[in-house]
Design a protein around this nucleic acid. Structure first.
Lengths: 343, 343
DNA sequence: AATCATTTCCAAAGCGCTTTGAGTAACCAA
DNA sequence: TTGGTTACTCAAAGCGCTTTGGAAATGATT
């Protein structure tokens, strides 16, 4: 079924049918209803490509998912982020175009996306500390929103981010208040901007109390369960083990918990753990009582906000940067307690 | 930059330039090179929609991601599957179109996808025991490949699946061989086809030895960490607790492990655990020694295979069903051991 | 009855590409 | 010179839609 057939069937011109379907005012309500009913009956929807070609818009948003070439790994927050963004797109008749690509040739993909005009805008995932993609997209003139920020304060662009610095500073202060003095930071890859900010917050909390954070207790890597396990195991075997862990993700924290168990210690009593929780749907932090004390921030919500922001930017044509900084919520679980005596 | 400008620039007709770029034989090598160089220099790529409109193909594959309306949850294997499929698409100049949709109105989405002709084919995720989507897509004439199968043996369609039945039968036999007699099955939602097959395998292993599986030790739900924890905790508190757990996913198994720890028992000694491992990139089953004894099967590979199969089907026009059944690999970890005496 | 607004509808151009059907130039053989 | 190949290149139609610039029908006003 196409417009031509449908309009012949209805005894109307293509123009009228098109206008009826697209809610133009110059069509009578009676005609509009008749047209829409027929469209439904014959299961007609305008051909995406023809419509896009005529309007110059693709009604699609691109998400470029970089696969870490080192670890061949997909970011686990990705699924929930996509779910959030996807809801918004569906609700606004937009499609989501996903490109899975080795982080090496991301630049090529963005150029192509722009040249082929296959999307009206893109979401940038996992910004690095100093990310070339931002300048690139500005040059290409493709609207975009960054999930996160780069450390480069010069560039002006739209982003949605969590206040990672403040969140980690608060979490660290929380542990310091409990008397902990040897706090380990299990952080994400330091080339990622968010990991930098988290580390800054961690250090700032120490500095504010004239304490020095121990560099030997700060590690950063891709946040897998295994990384959490390995680093915590090793630290717990030391002569002076940490009494608390501040962990950048639920998944790494699961590894830390395993290491604590293997070391014959009890989490919350012998060793405290506080985590950043992205509220992944398949890894809820407990259901009634939280397992971990956590600074939480829904990555799914972030997906919704990014999508909404980008659609707004595209629809309004307003190119001034929009920003949204989300604060985390600190929830108490069983994984934290006062530092053990003489710990 | 578009074809018209590029061809004027080169002093050629649009036809010649188009043919040069699309490797038609009736263009001299010298001309072709000149055209391709210019395209690169001016960063020209054919407009997706115009090209699609002219060719009648979209060069895009649709993935419809159902969000469980009950739990608002995304399947955690999704990210890795997508990564696998995405690699294949990139390599073959195809795009991936994602629709995130409440499982309730999936049908509408498929109809739209077909009517709008926005994709050349689709991948079906998470088939239910008796899935209406298969008949629907056959009616719509949209090529598709199912990741998994439905139990409805009548319909003929293309799929890539893991031999879940055999895998779980083997795993159960492995536990029975170790002397376990009270084995718990922590399974996925039974409306999903794969959960049915896994249960069948579990039951078959018992039946083959004239043993009866205890229905009170078989639970099924959406596979979260919390579900694993709750059900294992409850079972371990019983007068006659299970001595072994067969768990349908890594994530649920992490909950089971937590429950075992909380119960003051040691995994692998007091309680055995064997899991199905999808080899999620961010949840590796240990790095040198496996944490869990596991029947493993890479979901990323499954994504690649599905994508390849679908592209083949589309390219060849061959509508006879293609199938691929993957066997799992049973790897030994520290989580299993002989049933405790008098257990 | 004539004029003017309004409402409702239409024919046709154009979006950027592929592809058909044909044309031209260059070369060779007779 | 002529005719026949071969190797290149082109103009224009068409993909299915939106949208411009009118035109026809209707109703209100003089």
């Amino acid at each position: 079924m196409n417009l031509k057939k449908l309009s012949t069937l209805l005894g109307l011109s293509q123009t009228t049918v098109s206008r009826a379907l697209n809610d133009y005012p110059e069509v009578s309500e009676a005609t509009r209803k008749r047209v829409k009913d027929a469209a439904r009956a014959y299961n007609y929807s305008a051909n995406t490509r023809a419509k896009g070609l005529a309007t110059g818009r693709s009604m699609a948003i691109g998400h470029v998912i970089p696969i870490s070439t080192q670890h061949e790994m997909v970011n686990p927050v990705f699924a929930d982020f996509i779910a959030g963004a996807g809801e918004i797109y569906s609700r606004n008749d937009h499609d989501m175009l996903l490109s899975v690509v080795a982080d090496i040739d991301e630049e090529r993909i963005y150029r192509e996306l722009a040249a082929k005009a296959s999307v009206d805008g893109v979401i940038i995932h996992g910004p690095r500390a100093n990310d070339p993609r931002i300048k690139l997209l500005q040059e290409l003139g493709l609207p975009f929103v960054v999930h996160g920020r780069t450390s480069d304060e010069v560039a002006d662009y739209s982003w949605v981010d969590v206040n990672n610095r403040r969140s980690f500073q608060r979490a660290t202060e929380f542990l310091l208040d409990l008397g902990h003095r040897r706090i380990a930071l299990i952080n994400g890859l330091e080339l990622m901007d968010f990991a930098q900010r988290r580390k800054d917050g961690f250090l700032a909390a120490h500095a504010n109390r004239d304490l020095a954070a121990d560099p030997a207790l700060m590690v950063s890597e891709e946040m897998t369960e295994d990384f959490g396990y390995r680093s915590a195991s090793e630290m717990l075997r030391r002569a002076l083990p940490p009494t608390a862990f501040l962990v950048s993700s639920m998944i790494a924290a699961i590894g830390v918990r395993r290491a604590i168990g293997d070391a014959g210690k009890k989490m919350g009593r012998d060793v405290s753990v506080i985590i950043h929780d992205d509220e992944l749907s398949y890894l809820p932090n407990g259901v009634e009582i939280p397992i971990f004390t956590a600074a939480k921030s829904s990555v799914r919500l972030a997906g919704q906000l990014c999508a909404k922001m980008l659609l707004d930017i595209i629809a309004s044509g307003d190119r001034t940067p929009h920003n949204k900084l989300l604060e985390t919520e600190l929830t108490l679980g069983d994984s934290t307690g006062p530092a053990p005596e003489g710990g």
